[in-house]
Nucleic acid binder design. Structure first.
Lengths: 203, 203
DNA sequence: GGGAGTTAATTGAATATTCAGTCAGTAGAT
DNA sequence: ATCTACTGACTGAATATTCAATTAACTCCC
């Protein structure tokens, strides 16, 4: 089968095991066909045990969302030194690689499924709004550094980070919901050119 | 309540009424909680009638997807004359306005919900892959015109259209799944600048 | 150390509800 | 009389949730 994301490998505690089971079931069946039964099937212990740890299916899924977002935020690189343009290049790399690398591509899929629930679920929306803001702040900060370092032109860091965000969720949605994998390659090529034209300071 | 998209206003035929009912139920409950019962509730006639017109829930939903994609493609402007840069400006306008205008913003929401199903459903994925390709071809063609007209720099039309596609699905996903409506405004500002820097021919 | 008492983990079976899909039959048009 | 649109009642399967009962672990007193 596919390689599991490391954060779900060999969970020792019960919560970890439940998260892994939920993850597996979600990847296999999708959110709309996700049942307690199916989570239970991926779970070494019994299905009833899930109710010992969570009040309801909803409760469990909300905890799972928190778990996934924490993981996503944890994946963010901490740049301590080096030039900002390399950091941005790295961010672009990660953006377009997201979901296509050695790690289980199902992670992206699961994340999009959860995200789409935000359309109808207040709680989900709040989670994602918060998480997005966190990521954007990080990107904006990197851009700000680049401007101060003199490698970037004087763009608005907030606005630039916002575009990064849009492109990020765009690639994520596109990758998961389309067979046409050339779109990402081509889109990235143009995005790179755009950034070079507007963001990078010509030397 | 919210304004209905015109294409669903006062359907006279049965199919139209079923599409509207499905649309309403989808918007209200989301794909994962979409049941035949709930479609039936939004439907003036009885729930059993749905089975008179469709073999199964799946069958109905697939027809609904076709219906929505036809509507989406139908919304695309046909540019007969005028300069390509105005057309592109219009496309950008529509991209970022998508889901925020007088028409029911739920249209976007419904579309994203359907789109997300493509993660697990082959048939859905094929539909969207085809629809995306259709839209991209249109955008690429407009860009090609612009290059020939001499208003655009010599970019690769395919790649540029691909970036448009990513930004389009990105705004769509972002709008529906986040409370932070400033992201779209800010992202657009930067996207405009990028296009000006890379696409538009300086005069 | 060892039993008595308390709590947490765990299970399989049961319950109540929801869901997709069926069917026998009505009403109206041709 | 036949066909088509249409209906309400019905069903079996699936689903979330509960529960009574069992086991494992931990604690407090002797």
């Amino acid at each position: 089968m596919t390689q599991l994301p490391s954060f779900l490998d060999e969970p020792d505690d019960t919560r970890g095991a439940i998260m892994k089971a939920t993850y597996d079931a979600l990847c296999e069946h999708g959110y709309s066909d996700l049942t307690i039964q199916r989570i239970g099937n991926e779970f070494p212990k019994s299905k009833s045990l899930l109710y010992h740890h969570y009040d309801s299916k909803d409760d469990l899924l909300l905890d799972f969302l928190e778990f996934m977002l924490a993981e996503l935020e944890g994946q963010m690189p901490a740049y301590r030194d080096g030039s900002a343009d390399e950091h941005i290049a790295d961010i672009v790399d990660r953006t377009f690689a997201f979901g296509s690398t050695e790690k289980n591509p199902h992670f992206t899929q699961a994340l999009l499924e959860l995200r789409t629930q935000a359309a109808h679920d207040e709680a989900y929306r709040e989670y994602f709004t918060r998480s997005d803001r966190f990521v954007r702040k990080h990107v904006a900060h990197t851009i700000q550094s680049g401007i101060e370092q003199g490698v970037f032109q004087e763009v608005d860091p907030q606005e630039t980070a916002a575009l990064f965000q849009i492109v990020f969720v765009g690639t994520m949605t596109q990758r998961v919901t389309s067979d046409d994998d050339d779109v990402l390659r081509a889109g990235r090529a143009m995005f790179d050119q755009c950034l070079r034209a507007r963001l990078l300071r010509p030397e």
